[in-house]
């Protein structure tokens, strides 16, 4: 970590310098001459220690945006705009930061997984089913951090302890399918954290989980963002989750961000009509005066 990051307090305001800045990102998929626009110009800043929520419905382009940051789009995608990583640790970072769009694959691979990590909705898809958790964790650490076998194992145990996987030493020798969905997501988070990334992209990390398990993962993400000064981009359609842990919220629709602001503002005083529409569609917003509630009263 750099000195700049270490001096940052957990409650840093959104005005703190961004570690990752997305400016005018566009993504089109399809033939190069006439790509189908998926993302049509979004800008957002990720700040250390802060969780930036990206809300939107399916097809709004929120997942594609997060994949674009990692350079994980399919070959027929066309990406425009700028994604800049301000991170002294990555090679070639000048005062202006490192531009990720158009970066060569090898250079991008060094950043991907090491400086910018990602977790997905389905943890099973990011874990190899036929390798033990231990070997997946230690391989990752040894490749990227050049640690020895013993050091890598210690690091793996430390990581599993941190994400609160029970019996970390024993867990190293087990396979992903031997864990519950919640534990698998914790393991995926441990792997994502293995190289001390500065940015964590979380795409619907709790959508596949039961609500009681989800609560535990949300606590973990919040704690990690605070203690490691991680800049988190949380992609989710669940406004409850958004309200619980996001510091800033951007609402996406049809490939553009219609509204960005602090959480309190988005939920308390939404400016854009679409944000209001989303909030009004929530079951909790449909209180005692909904038709069904009246009908229910009458029928009782």
């Amino acid at each position: 970590m750099t000195d700049v990051l270490n001096t940052m307090v957990p409650d840093a305001e959104a005005t703190a310098p961004a570690v990752l800045s997305v400016q005018g990102l566009t993504v089109g998929i399809g033939p190069r001459k006439a790509p189908k626009p998926i993302v049509t110009g979004i800008s957002l800043d990720l700040v250390p220690g802060r969780i930036h929520g990206l809300a939107g419905e399916s097809g709004s382009g929120k997942t594609v945006s997060s994949l674009a940051i990692l350079g994980l789009l399919p070959a027929n995608a066309t990406v425009g705009g700028s994604i800049t990583l301000f991170d002294a640790d990555s090679n070639g970072a000048g005062p202006g930061g490192t531009e990720l769009i158009g970066m060569r694959r090898r250079a991008l691979n060094r950043i991907r997984g090491r400086r910018i990590a990602m977790i997905f909705q389905d943890p099973s898809s990011s874990l190899h089913p036929q390798l033990t958790v231990g070997s997946q964790l230690t391989d990752h650490v040894r490749t990227h951090l050049k640690l020895g076998r013993e050091a890598a194992r210690d690091r793996a145990i430390e990581l599993l302890t941190r994400v609160r996987v029970p019996n970390p030493v024993e867990a190293l020798g087990r396979y992903p399918h031997q864990f519950s969905g919640g534990q698998r997501q914790r393991i995926a988070i441990a792997i994502a954290l293995a190289c001390d990334p500065v940015v964590l992209l979380a795409d619907e990390p709790t959508t596949a989980l039961d609500v009681t398990v989800q609560a535990g993962i949300l606590h973990l993400l919040r704690d990690l963002a605070d203690e490691r000064q991680l800049a988190v981009l949380l992609v989710t359609h669940d406004l409850g989750v958004m309200s619980a842990i996001a510091d800033e919220v951007s609402v996406m629709r049809h490939g553009v961000i219609v509204e960005t602001g602090p959480r309190e503002q988005i939920f308390g005083a939404p400016q854009h009509a679409y944000t209001r529409e989303l909030l009004e569609s929530l079951p909790s917003a449909q209180g005692a005066d909904t038709p069904s509630a009246i009908q229910k009263e009458a029928g009782r």
């Binding site: 609500v211 009681t212 609560a215 958004m242 309200s243 619980a244 842990i245 309190e264």
Partner: peptide, 23 residues
């Protein structure tokens, strides 16, 4: 009780839902 208290409320207050102590 655990189920109900684990539901995050979309109220914008930033309150993490209660997580059960153990799985």
């Amino acid at each position: 009780r655990a189920l109900l208290s684990a539901i995050p409320a979309p109220d914008g207050r930033g309150i993490l839902p209660a997580a059960p102590a153990a799985e």
